[in-house]
């Protein structure tokens, strides 16, 4: 057999791809999105808490945030997913009454995401000029209100590109929950491609899964570039000269 034909059949067997596409779209895609979005949202909430602790004047809070971040950023994602997914399953069974590892997969991804997102938020918040907090406090806002209304919104805006990058990581890392052994209806994109590959002995289903990941991630990377550019240059708006400086307040000549 011609070597090129063999390669084409291994990677691009359209028949095998076509067979797996319905499951990829109907089962894999929703599950991947649920895993990534849920852990992204919970991770952002937990991450914001970690960021606030990280910049707190309370040394204890800073330490807790520091240690948490060191641990969950320092461990391989697959190890966290296995340890959480297997280690906490008896507790999860007590609480939910089910053996489904899916919620634990979300929990593990959340804990990992929070460590990264916390650092992203912290750097963003710390990049906001000191004068912003000072001006807000001078108006009479408390430290908490100043952070909530003035500093944190600006900090988050600045790190939007990094947050989208983090979400792209989550989309890809969500594939690792396959290690926990999911029910057929809970499988995400990678697991479906992988199962089809194992059943057929042909790589094409996995290639199809890969293409589906790219369809999700490539537009997002370009979206990052777009908002990054927009944040740096702002919406174009015309500047006018300070034409009103002169007429007001004639008292200056006094």
């Amino acid at each position: 057999m011609d070597l090129l034909d063999q390669l084409a059949d291994t990677f691009f067997n359209w028949e095998e791809m076509a067979k797996v596409i319905p499951a990829l779209l109907m089962v894999g895609l929703p599950n991947t999105l649920i895993l990534a979005v849920a852990s992204g949202v919970f991770g952002a909430l937990l991450g914001l808490g970690l960021a606030m602790m990280g910049i707190s004047r309370n040394a204890g809070a800073r330490w807790v945030a520091r240690i948490y971040t060191d641990i969950f950023r320092g461990l391989p994602a697959i190890l966290v997913i296995l340890v959480i997914g297997i280690g906490l399953s008896p507790i999860a069974r007590e609480i939910t009454g089910s053996r489904n590892p899916y919620p634990l997969g979300i929990l593990a991804l959340t804990l990992i995401a929070a460590a990264y997102i916390g650092e992203i938020f912290r750097s963003g918040i710390q990049s906001v000029e000191k004068g912003q907090l000072e001006a807000s406090r001078a108006l009479g806002f408390s430290y908490g209100s100043s952070m909530r209304l003035v500093v944190v919104p600006q900090g988050i805006r600045r790190v939007l590109p990094a947050l989208v990058n983090q979400f792209i990581s989550l989309l890809k890392d969500s594939s690792l929950v396959f290690m926990l052994g999911l029910a057929a209806s809970d499988r995400e994109i990678f697991r479906i491609g992988n199962d089809a590959m194992a059943n057929t002995g042909n790589l094409s289903p996995l290639v199809a899964a890969g293409v589906l990941y790219l369809i999700l991630t490539v537009p997002l990377t370009h979206f990052v570039n777009f908002i990054d550019h927009r944040l740096r240059t702002g919406k174009p708006e015309k500047k006018e000269p300070d034409e009103l400086a002169a007429p007001i307040g004639k008292g200056a000549q006094a």
Partner: peptide
């Protein structure tokens, strides 16, 4: 420099 005047005028008022 050309913008100082307007602000000082306001402060004077």
């Amino acid at each position: 420099p050309e913008l100082v005047k307007g602000v000082l005028a306001l402060m004077t008022d």
